[in-house]
Amino acid sequence: MGNLFVICEIEEGKIADVSLELLTKGRSLANDLSCKLEAVVLGHQLKGIEKQVFPFGVDVLHLADSKDLEIYTTLPFTAVIVDLFKQEKPEICLLGATTLGRDLGPRISSALQSGLTADCTSLEIGDHEDKKAGKTYKNLLYQIRPAFGGNIVATIINPDCRPQMATVREGVMKMEVYNENHKGKVKTIDVDKLLKPEDLVVKVIERHMEKSKVNIKNSSIIVAGGYGMGSREGFNQLFQLAEVLSAEVGASRAAVDAGYADHERQIGQTGVTVRPKLYIACGISGQIQHTAGMEESAMVIAINNDSNAPINKIADYVINGEVNDIVAKLIKLYKKNSK
């Protein structure tokens, strides 16, 4: 059996959080399967990068270091990984569901004629019986994700094709050091020998990356608004509540689609996953795409005018009524009592 591979991303010279989260999950799945955890890092000037991944339980690190890989482009990254996977025959391959992973993952899966499941919210190992074919499969990767607008949760498997590939969004899995002293092996990939001129036809001619302005992932209190805020002005009221509570503002997809908030504030299956101490859901009905990204909050307050909204079922406090009015009162009452 092949091993479990995680394709790691580099962000400002460091392994991205989402990749470390996948290494954490990958280590535990590899233990379930009694196989090795292998990481792949592509980039330029990667000296010492192994120190960042070994504590997460990486047994083998495949390193592709080249000027041609400094800035991500699809074709050379695909060429390096497809070549590696043809030799190593991984059992499982995990990638971040980032703009990079969602560009690269399908390209690799197509080249290897293998299945890929996007934006998984849970990964488990389990068996499968195909009664029609009379075949039993042991130790498959269950790729679990909401589907169909979040009304159902589907468990997807790839019985016959390898690697079994899945992408996972940032924040969905927990990041945990496996063992500070864990040591793996580094294997270097000869990139120059591998890349052909046709792999380098796409050129990045300009690039402006900015640090994320909002930091909802690490905020201990989140005030999130949905379509029920009614308007951009109505939504803006949440920034006042967030300011007095030292909180960060989040949004549901419906609110982002309606233009009330920027995409980087989106919480849920197609946004970020958060686990704050307190989550205040304002005018959010609570479709599973949204709750998938916040259900592990320690405490939830739901404010909306629908006493049957799904969000109420996972809330510790349910406040029923006109949301803008309630938010205004909460701001006032908090100011009054906090001094």
Partner: peptide, 15 residues
Amino acid sequence: PTKVKKIENVVFQAK
């Protein structure tokens, strides 16, 4: 290559 093994309707655990 991918097959749907199982589909579940979403049921919230009421708190």
